[in-house]
């Protein structure tokens, strides 16, 4: 009878040995290669540190002007620029300037890495159905697996610090750009592709003259999503030693500081909204050619 009431499990000893074996071999692996991997990521760490110092140490009015200029270049909308500057002034007034700059640094670097890694993978997926069916489940895992689970091996390998934090952010934030690059390329009008072929385009010419430009609105939506997801990882990144707005949030959780948590949380929201609106209006301007009633 016990067969039906108790799920037939693996023998206790064997299960313990299995887990121990996995832990042991990964520990050996990280002892053996940890330093090597750390060295590989060293340039990334230097770049992140440099960028963060640049944002923190540059006098705040200069940073503010640069941010305002970027908002203008992106959106061509004075209201958005004014809103951006007001938000940053308010953040600074509430003494969150330094943490905000750190967060901006890690989110920017994470987004750059995601673009550099994600777009080529998206292109590969669009080129080959088999690659697509191999990568899709990996992306699903990356988006659904609880962050803490992949933090364990990352921390075991690289310890606590900025690089493991950056990796954690990228793992979570890269899937949308891969997916949308793939989708965007696959959605390009077959007739236009046929025309490109008929004029003798090589794969490369077809990709850069036709597929990428026409996929750009979708790729851009992917970049936008990636930025949003990177921002939402700020608190988790703070748990493994990434400075920024996530750190005071963590402190607020453990000490029940309502105001501190709210303020820093809202600062993250403000940055997210600014990034989103600016990048979206930039994306819309990329599609200027679609204006006019005849639709192609």
């Amino acid at each position: 009878m016990s067969f039906f009431t108790e799920f037939p499990t693996m023998e206790r000893q064997a299960l313990r040995d299995l887990k121990k074996g996995i832990d042991g071999s990964f520990r050996d692996f990280s002892r053996e290669y940890g330093e090597l991997i750390e060295n590989i990521f060293h340039p990334l760490l230097m770049f992140l540190k440099w960028f963060q110092d640049l944002l923190v140490e540059t006098p705040w009015p200069v940073v503010l002007v640069v941010i305002g200029a970027l908002a203008w270049i992106g959106s061509r909308n004075w209201w958005l620029v004014a809103g951006t500057i007001a938000a940053f002034l308010f953040i600074g007034y509430l003494d969150m300037w330094e943490d905000t700059m750190s967060t901006l640094a890690i989110v920017s670097v994470a987004t750059l890495i995601c673009i550099a890694v994600g777009i080529p993978f998206g292109i590969l997926m669009a080129r080959n159905d088999r690659v697509q069916s191999a990568i899709l489940p990996v992306l699903d895992i990356m988006q659904t697996i609880p962050s803490f689970v992949y933090l364990i091996p990352v921390v075991m390998l690289l310890g606590i610090g900025k690089v493991p934090g950056l990796i954690a952010v990228c793992v979570y934030a890269v899937p949308p750009i891969v997916r949308l690059t793939n989708l965007g390329i696959r959605l390009v009008d077959k007739d236009v592709l046929e025309a490109a072929d008929a004029f003798g385009s090589s794969y490369r010419e077809r990709l850069f003259n036709v597929q990428m430009p026409l996929a750009l609105p979708n790729i851009f939506a992917g970049v936008n999503q990636t930025i949003m997801m990177a921002l939402s990882m700020v608190v988790i990144a703070a748990m493994i030693g990434v400075p920024g707005l996530g750190v005071p949030v963590l402190r607020a959780i453990s000490n029940q500081y309502l105001a501190l948590g709210m303020m820093n949380g809202l600062a993250i929201v403000a940055i997210a909204i600014i990034f989103d609106r600016v990048s979206q209006s930039y994306g819309r301007r990329l599609q200027k050619h679609r204006e006019g009633g005849h639709g192609v």
Binding site: D191, V192, A195, A198, F199, V210, P213, L214, V296
Partner: peptide
């Protein structure tokens, strides 16, 4: 051959919209 010898015009125009 496609570049220099034979070019094509399409029913649905197939212009590059961008």
């Amino acid at each position: 051959f496609r570049r220099f010898k034979a070019s094509m015009v399409f029913q649905k125009f197939a212009l590059l919209p961008h």
